[in-house]
Structure formats: C-alpha cells, structure tokens
Design a protein around this nucleic acid. Structure first.
Lengths: 246, 246
DNA sequence: ACACCAAACTTGTCGTACAACTATGTAACC
DNA sequence: GGTTACATAGTTGTACGACAAGTTTGGTGT
C-alpha cells in the first residue's frame, strides 16, 4: 500500500464521452466559420433533437464552450458566438530567461504587478487570506532553516499575496512566471559559508515578514513599500551575481 | 414587487448565476493552492451538500473547469486537479468582460502595470519615444475634437508609454488587453450633450498631457502620480456608468 | 395610436432515476 | 496461505421531467 503513484497518469486524455464529442463538434463549427461571430446558436432543444442526446449533455457541452470563451449565453435569449474567439495571449518563454538580464526584466514586470497587488491585498484580505499567507510563510521559514533554497516556498508565499487581492487576473498573470522564475541560481547558497547562509535566511525572513505584517494590519502604504523594497533588493542581489560572474 | 423592472436594455451583463459562482469558487481553491495538483476533489454529492446547489449546477461548474484544463474527471473515480494547473499563457477571455465589474478588475491590473511602466518610461525614454508619444497624443486630440470616441487612439497612446520602458514584457503584456479593453462602452458619448462632450474631451486631454509631460521631463514620481490619477478617474467614470444603468 | 398584458419560447435550476466504471472487501478455490 | 471470482458500495455519466426566470411577440382594451 505504499504506492499511490497517482499524478503521473495524467497524460491520459479525457475518455471519449458524449459531452466531449458534442463540445468538439460545436467548437469545430464555430472555428470553421460555419457559425459566425454574433450569430445565435440553435436552441438546446434543437441540438437535442438534432443529435439525439439529452439536455444534460447539451448544457454541459455549452458550459464547456462558455468556459473557453467561444460563446456567451443569456437567459431567455439564447447562446451566441463570441465576437473575438481568439484573444492574444501572454507568455514567458523559458529560453528567454537564460540571461540574467532577462530575469531582471521580468522582475521589473513583477514589481509593477506585486506593488499594486500588495496594496489591494492590504485593503481586501480576509482572515482566510491571512491564514494562508501565514502557512506559506511558515513553510518558507522552515525550508530556509533546514538549509534549503526555499524557492518553491518563496513562490507560494508571493502567490498567496496575489490571491488576497480577490482579483483573479493578478493570480492568473502571476502564474505565467510560474516555475520559470524560481531556478536554483536565485542565490548561490552552495557558495556561501554557514554564517552567510544564516544572514541570508534572516534577511529574507525579515523582508517577507514585513510584507505579511503590513497586509495583515491593513496598512496599504506599508505593504506597497515593503514589497517594493523586497523586490528591489532581490534585483540588486541578482545584479551583484551577474557582475560577479562577469 | 421587486426592483429593476424598468425596460432598460442593459448593455450586456452576465447576471451572476449559481454556476459561475461555484466555478469561480472552485477555481480560486485550485489556484490558491488549497487543492493541490493530483489531489482529488470532493465528490459531486459532497459539493452539493456543502454549497446547497443541485447536481446540475455542480456538473456544469466542473465542466467549465474541465474545459479550462484545471481538472480531469474519470468515471467511477472522481475529479482530480491537473498536474500543471498553472497555464503558461495569460489571456483575457472576452466572455469574462461582459460584466462591468470584470472590466474594473482588468483596470486594476492595468493600474499595476502602467504605474510601474510610467516610472520606468520617465527614466529611460529616448527622444524617439517622446516623438512617438507626441504623435499618438496629437492623433488622440484630433479624434476627440472631431467628436469621436478616440478609443483606438487612446489605446495607442497608452501603448507608446509601455514601449518607452524598453522592457518588451510590458508591451507584450499590454497587447493582451488589446481590442478587448476599448469597446464602445468606455464612455457613452452618444448620450452626452455637446457641452458634456467638450468637457469630457478637455478632461481626457489634460490627464493625458500630464502623463506625457512628466515622462518627457524625466519626472518619475510625477509620471506615476499622473497615470494613477488618470486610471483611477477612468475607473470612477466606469463605476458611475455601472451605477447609472442599475 | 398607445399602454398594457398574456402567451410562447428560451435558458437557468432542481430532483430523481438508472447506467457505466472503479475500488475494496469477502468468500470460494487451489 | 495465497489467489481468483464475485458481490457490493461509491462515483461519475446520461436521461427525463418539471418549474423558475428572462425575453420577445402579438393581441387586447382603452
């Protein structure tokens, strides 16, 4: 009973079922231009009789299209093909981050996002948000105490700030940085002495706790100051690293 | 009798329905890390009793998450959080923007990005950047003078600020807002009197010029202040619009 | 001609029932 | 004892019927 290796079999595609088939069919009709933007889709009843499936299936298929932004529905009116079915997307290509200069540019972007997010979080945080941030902070402290890099934990803590804005766009955007932004080079712990490590851990702890405390105390200005200070110092440490290796 | 039964054809608002609420709730739980990758979600029955909605709603909400790739479901087994629930790309689904509240959330995101970008632009702008911004500003003024919305020109001016940061991530991110953020609802010019239009145009002109002047003069703090003021006022105008139609 | 309202139609939500699939425990078998 | 086969409970997939809520249309009365 020690196995439980779930998590790897996720490669399997969704088993073919009626809902997926219908959703794919409608998607194809929209993308092929058969159903034009703004045009109204057949009613659920019409789709039922045309395809022979139940209304449950039709509604779940429409829910899928709606989630993908292909259609919009209005009660009493019907379903309509969205006007702009292909929005532009933003992503960070991992290869771009090979150079330290590129990482610094992403840090600049993070500064803009997290600075505002910290302010919003300070205003809107709930007790749940605080609890979550506290948990992440504890995990980060623990990782640092055990001599680890704490990269993953650092990312999780920062993300908990974005969640506390209660504006999902912040979280979604932050995810594009994702695991790319937490490589092992963040700090050359392996090159540090034990004393240096300790100082580094204490510094990180202090900076993170300042952010946490400001948001907890609903101090918007302090939260902004704290996150700006933290990210500025992170960037400065990174520049040192670049200059040292050059 | 209940309220709001006047025959006002509200532009298009996605009436908050049970399905969207539940889907947002589950999405938040996944994105916040409360439900970890590979972890199994509560059963549909459990969600039903926990939230008090019918299984139809639960299933449609799950269908939405599945369409977004956040979960996978297997008959007889359950629903599981996808291994990589963090999408590598960020995009704004037009469907989300049908409610004015959603537009305000995107404005909040823009605030974070443009606030920082204005500061960077003030520090780094070249003469070319200034010339380009001046051109865009002239085009915007001209469009407003002619009584147009100036939506495209407004977008182009803001984008020229992002370009002046000399950090391509800012421009690339801003492009995701693209045509979605400049719909016809930005201001109901058609409902304005001639005098109101003129005041509106003058106000826009003043706010934009303050941003431009600060960046031109390399005044970082002023640039930040100006863009924050401008976007705050835009949001306020939007909220007025929302409250007026309610 | 106008305001008002009833009816038809559409999506939103609810409830029940059964089918298909999976894991687990149990009993029979070697 | 160890293995196989099966019964069973739990979960998702699908179907059907019913009513609520929003929208349009057309008629009805004034």
């Amino acid at each position: 009973m020690t196995d439980k290796d779930n998590g790897v079999f996720n490669i399997f595609q969704q088993a073919p079922n009626l809902r997926s088939n219908l959703a794919d069919m409608l998607t194809a009709q929209i993308e092929s231009g058969d159903l034009k933007p703004g045009q109204r889709l057949p009613t659920e009843q019409a789709i039922m009789t045309a395809t022979g499936v139940s209304r449950t299936i039709v509604r779940e298929a429409l829910a899928a299209l709606r989630a993908k932004g292909l259609i919009t529905t209005r009660q009493g009116l019907g379903a309509f093909v969205s006007n702009d079915p292909t929005p532009r997307s933003f992503s960070i290509i991992p290869n771009d981050l090979q150079s330290i200069d590129e990482v610094l540019r992403v840090l600049e972007l993070r500064m803009g996002i997290e600075y505002e997010a910290a302010g919003l979080a300070a205003m809107r945080r709930t007790q749940e948000d605080i609890d979550r941030m506290q948990d992440r902070l504890d995990e980060l402290d623990k990782a640092l105490e055990e001599g680890g890099y704490g990269a993953q934990e650092d990312y999780a803590f920062h993300r908990s700030i974005l969640v506390a804005t209660h504006n999902s766009y912040y979280g979604r955007l932050f995810d594009t940085f994702g695991n790319i932004m937490v490589p092992r080079q963040w700090a050359r712990l392996d090159k540090m002495t034990s004393a240096e490590r300790k100082r580094h851990a204490a510094r990180m702890r202090r900076e993170h706790h300042a952010i946490f405390a400001a948001i907890r105390d609903r101090d918007e200005a302090a939260a902004r100051r704290a996150i700006r200070s933290h990210l500025s110092k992170s960037a400065a440490r990174f520049e040192e690293l670049r200059d040292a290796t050059a």
